[in-house]
Computed example of a mutant assay.
Amino acid sequence: MQNQYDPRTTNASGFGPAVSVGVPRAARDAGLRSYMLKVYNYMASGVLLTGIVALLFAPYARDVLINASGTGLSGLGWLITFAPLGFVLAMSFGINRMSTATLQLMFWAFATVMGLSMSTIFIVYTGVSIAQTFFAVTAAFLGLSLWGYTTKKDLSGFGTFLIMGVVGLLVAMVINIFLQSSAMALAISAIGVLLFAGLTAYDTQKIKSMYAYVAGTDMMGKSIIMGALTLYLDFINMFQFLLSFMGNRE
């Protein structure tokens, strides 16, 4: 899932690099570090909330989310599964109409619903493999995001390729619902890990570039939340694909 909030489109809203004109470089650098730290804090807090909710709800997940025959999701299970997508779309397309406080509330609600949705992984995979995958993804995410933040290479050219790859991946996942091919599922998981690894670096650089457009404006708080949402999605998707690829099943 990728939201449609792209910092390169904000000039239409009246922002531009001119907001930083006349600001000393040291002050801009300090402001950027503070901005990115807030993005990472929101993102990490969202992941933590999702993990806590998933862990607490796991004992009830089978009864609530799985149908009586045990062969698929219940009606409530489908609702909870697709609810996070609804939050992402609402936040992405409603950013200009929503207040910062509303976006914050929706971000926490999104992270909570994601926790409910992801509680089923405790039914499918062993606790050890979930923990191992989480720490592996955390280390990879930190390294990739740091590289995206510090590299002088312009990664914008990779953005279209990566997002097209995600669209293709979603199509393949839908097709495999009918094919039920284990080999195809394995390939989807491997490609998914690589795509979201690339998106982690790309999105970090994109969020960093956003600071020049929103510094000192009312959009600052909103951009922090949407940046956190973007990195959250990169992390969670990379985690889920890697768990599908390497996780030990119960």
Rank of each mutant, 00 (worst) to 15 (best):
G198C: 09
W147P: 01
A12W: 00
S189R: 02
A26N: 08
F134M: 12
Y5N: 10
L155Q: 03
G16D: 04
L195T: 10
L76N: 09
V124C: 02
S119T: 03
A183Y: 12
F107K: 02
F93N: 13
L146M: 13
W147T: 08
Q205E: 11
G127H: 10
M219D: 11
W147Y: 15
L49Q: 04
L233R: 03
G22A: 01
A183K: 15
A83W: 15
V167F: 05
A183V: 14
N176D: 07
Q104E: 13
I224C: 09
S244Y: 15
L116Y: 09
N41K: 10
D6I: 01
T150D: 03
W108A: 13
I236G: 00
A101I: 13
A139N: 02
P17R: 12
T160C: 00
I80L: 15
L146K: 11
M220C: 00
D203I: 08
A172C: 05
G94L: 07
V47E: 00
G247H: 06
Q4A: 10
L231A: 05
G14C: 03
F57T: 00
F241Y: 15
A111H: 06
G115Y: 05
T133N: 14
G115N: 07
R8I: 02
L194S: 03
M164E: 02
K153L: 04
I175L: 05
A58T: 04
S13K: 01
K153S: 05
A90V: 14
G216V: 11
T133A: 03
L199S: 05
